[in-house]
Design a protein around this nucleic acid. Sequence first.
DNA 1: AAATTTAGCGCG
DNA 2: AAAGCGCGCTAAATTT
Length: 502
Amino acid sequence: MKIIDTSTMIEDDFDKFTLHQIYNGLDACVTYEVLDALLPQLDNYTAGTYEFSRALQGPALEMRLRGVRIDNRRRQEVIEEYYESLSALEAQLEYIVSEGCGLWNFNWRSNSDLKELFYVRLGIPPIRKQGRITVDRSALEKMEAYTVAKPIVRHLEAMRDIGKKIQVLKTAIDSDCRIRTSYNIGGTSTGRFSSSFSEFGTGTNLQNIEESLRSVFISDPGMKMAYLDAQQGESRVVGAIEWNLFRDGRYLDACEGGDLHTAVAKLCWPELDWPGDLAGDREVAERIYYRHYDRRFMCKKIGHGSNYGGKPRTLAAQAKVDIDVISDFQPKYFLAFPAHLRWHADVQQRLNRTGHLVSLTGRKRWFLGRRSDDSTLREAIAYDPQGSLADILNGGMLNVWRSTVGCQLLMQIHDAILIQYPEEQEDKIIPKVLKQLEQPLALKHDRELVIPYDAKVGWNWGKYDSSENVDGLKTWKGGDTRQRTKEMHLLDRPVRRAYRRG
DNA sequence: AAATTTAGCGCG
DNA sequence: AAAGCGCGCTAAATTT
């Protein structure tokens, strides 16, 4: 054994391999020295958080290693279809812009080209966002009101939608037809995971995949998937915080009593025909409202946004409703749940006095922004529910991972996990998984927080659809009689589309 | 030519 | 002038 003093060594004295070993050694040893300096600084809260983070390395590394199987044939097909639609739209738009507006060498992805087109050539008054001129989606939507802009805008909206999907679909996957991500356990200020490309440079963030692309993620042969998501998780945590602080359980009661987002929808659109029962109301709330989103989805935004200090104008813009809808809604909402405003005031006070907060699950965070800034207060308000739910979800995930229920973790998506298991054992495994996830958290004044999980099962990550996606996720009720669609040999498949000429 | 910043957009 | 929070990725634009 040879000891190398890196403070005096001369690089030229060593071969490349040895230099790599030295580099690795420094990586490990210096990190260890840092740990020596950090450990004495831990307090009761941060020591717990550190231990928890270390424990999460197990499931996180396993998910990173395993990856998720991709239906590559379907992926390629979809990419091709999207590319075809995109190039057709591109050609049409190029024609409109060159012949109609006299703009050559126009690039629809270039925001400066778009600003030139709309705000100079077409003479539309510039639309601003935080003081800056913008051509984002909401600006495009506003410009639909101008007859000259409308066909262009319609093209751009469709092209951006498709372009975004292509971007995700063409992400490089590994040679074993699996997509892998790298979870970063300490990657956020709240305690959530972050997700990004894998250590091999393949894959991507898997926590922002849109619903329409999820069906290309499939389970392994003989395995079936379950998507388990915490029902109204963040809202329940808000309710739990308010219970602990003020012994005011009205919001938690509301979460536990019914569907909160539907209740918000009823407050926002009282003029709609609400049947009055849980299932009927939910059906009304789930009718498509804007793009592919339903009212219930919009109300999630309105509810969360209001909880976290959102103002009518912003929330109205986000939920695509008239500002009056929110201005009418919020007073009713804060009257029904007065603890919300008390909680905000309490956060403000703690922030001013101490500069840090400890969440419901005992996670401590310092706030380094100016304490007098509104944005610092809003960060602080959002912190506890967001961080606590992450801890609760991850705690449940850790239970599942440590247990012997016989499933494999595939993904963590903030308030949900995706797992797979031998399909014939579904009805044995799902209840056990739910039990591991739904462990109660003790609150003050003799109450518990239990977050129920919704389980959906299938052979791919997309939503079940009787015509489009029969293998997709369907709410688990026990006894799913479906059989997985057989994979068809390439040559046996019907030809879907003729080659385009040209 | 390479590195960094900006704008836009997807998810929870 | 604007006022939910938390992320990561891409193409274009800008700086080095």
